[in-house]
Every structure is written in structure tokens, then in C-alpha cells.
Computed example of a mutant assay.
Amino acid sequence: MTTPDADQVDEGSELVRLASADNFRDVAGDGYLTGAGVALRTGVLFRSNELQLSDADAHRIASLGVVDVFDLRGADEIEAHPDIDVPGATWHHVEVAGIPMLRVAELASREEAEQVMRAVYRAFVEAPGARAAYGELLRRIADADGAQLFHCTAGKDRTGWASVLLLRLAGVPEQTVREDYLETNAHAGTREKYVAMIREHLGEEKVPVYEAVMLADLDYVAAADAAVVEMFGDLDTYVREGLGVDDATRARVVARLLP
């Protein structure tokens, strides 16, 4: 996968890096290939961390034709760090429960942190509210007319699972899906900001504990996948019965990502 420099824009594939949203990127990457060798359409779906945008970056997103912004964060997160408006885009709240920070504050070891994260990912599949939110997101994507953006706080977990689902539905090979999910770890601005806060307020010894919460880890995706198998048997049934996305809607989602 290509990772452009901070100021580089590939106008053909719309690869864009934003200074004020370090994990903003195209869901389709630079045109990921499906298993059949078809390149995904870029410039249709974007993902990000929280939109604490500079004016220039807000207008850069608007220039990509984004008409919908889906905020997956909880109400407390939104109140603390409300999105900066993207000109021409409609903001939607589609809440998925994220990392329980009160629980995280009590963690004493990296192992405990990893256990919490696996539980968070299982909840993406097991919790009715999360299933309803992801189903709503897919239905809105299916029926959209214009580019769309979805995000959470770090653009890592709730956003990461949504991107995993979209790429899998589009038929992208699993190796590419995994590489795309892990790419979050290469965009470290947000993580470094919070690590610095932890170091300052909680001490150096807490940094390794919290790093497990701040990194994308394939073990976490595996926990969600295990929940899919246990509850629904396979991805197709999870999408149809768990998310309430029928086959026709699913086909429209995939059609938006394919040429």
C-alpha cells in the first residue's frame, strides 16, 4: 500500500493526508484490488479520526464532494470534542459504544488492556445497539448520492470494524483488509498526543498499559470475527440477520465501491 507524504495528493486516486486529522484516508486505499482483480473506486467513502479540523482541512474534505459525515462516537465524546463542520455536508450521529474509559482507568497491566479491547470488538457484533448502528451506516451508504465520511475518536476501532466490513463485502482479499486495518498504527499523531497526556498525568509506568488500547491489533479483529461465527455462523448471515441489511441493499453498498 502506498502512503503519500503529508502534503501529497494523488488526484487520480484522491489519496489525501490532512494535518489536522492524521487518520483521514480513503476506504478504498489507492484503489485496492478485489479477489477478481478489479480496482475499487476511490473518492467514494472516507474514514477518519475525530474531525478537529483546521479551516483548510475542512474545505479540503468539502472539495472531495463529501455530503454526509457519520459520527460513530458517544454523546460524551461529541460534547468534549464536537466535529468541525464540513461545508456542504450533513452531520449524522450513528452511535457505537467504544472503549469504556472508566474501566481503562483501572487497568493495571497490558494483558488486562488487551482483554478489554477484545471485549470491545466482540461488542461490535454482540451488542444490539452496535448492530443497529452498523446496519444504519451500511443502509445510508447504499442509498447515498455523493461521497461520505465516517469516523470515531481515533479512527481505529469503531471506524476500523466498519472499514473491515466494507472491504470484505467488496471482495478485497483478507491480507489487504488486514494491512488496511493496521495502517492506523502508521498515523501516530493522535496516539502520541494521548500518550503524552498519560505520561504527564499518570506516569511512565502506565504508558505500556494504555498503548494496548491505542494500537490497532489483529487479535481484536479476530475477537469480533469469533463473535460473528458464534452468533451468526458467517459474515453473510451477520450482515443479513445481525445488521438487518438485505441482499439488495448489500449489493448497492458493493456497487458504490466497484467501477
Rank of each mutant, 00 (worst) to 15 (best):
T184L: 10
F70V: 06
M197E: 14
K206G: 14
N185W: 05
R178P: 00
N49P: 07
E205Y: 07
N49A: 14
D83L: 08
L165V: 14
W161G: 13
A223C: 12
E192G: 04
A144I: 00
F70A: 03
S54D: 13
R250C: 15
D71L: 01
V229I: 04
D145V: 00
A223R: 07
Y210K: 01
L202M: 14
A186W: 02
S63D: 12
D68I: 00
T184M: 08
C152D: 11
G233L: 06
Y134R: 09
E50F: 13
M214I: 06
E77S: 04
P259L: 01
A113S: 10
S63E: 05
I198C: 04
T34R: 08
D26T: 02
P128S: 04
V209H: 08
L215V: 04
A133G: 06
L102A: 04
D143W: 02
N49S: 11
M101F: 15
E111H: 04
G65V: 05
V9I: 12
S13G: 01
V228P: 11
S63A: 06
D68A: 15
C152W: 12
D68V: 00
L167F: 14
H93M: 06
L243F: 02
V86C: 06
M231I: 01
A6P: 15
D219R: 14
A123E: 07
V67W: 00
G29R: 03
A144Y: 00
R73K: 05
V116N: 02
D71H: 00
L149I: 14
V104C: 09
L18A: 09
A144K: 01
E79I: 02
F24I: 09
L182W: 07
F46A: 06
A255P: 06
A36I: 00
R191F: 10
T190D: 08
G31N: 03
Y194C: 03
T190V: 05
L257N: 06
A147S: 04
D219T: 04
E95N: 04
A36F: 01
A212C: 11
H187F: 15
T34I: 06
A6Q: 15
M1I: 09
G189A: 11
M101E: 10
V120Y: 11
S13H: 13
V86R: 02
R139W: 13
G244R: 05
G12C: 04
T42S: 10
A36S: 11
V104S: 13
M231L: 09
P4V: 08
S163I: 05
D143A: 11
S48F: 12
G129W: 04
A154C: 08
T90V: 12
A19Y: 03
A62T: 09
A80Y: 07
V96M: 02
P128W: 06
V69K: 04
D236K: 05
L167V: 09
A75N: 05
E241G: 00
A56P: 05
P128N: 03
S13K: 02
E205Q: 05
P208S: 09
R191N: 06
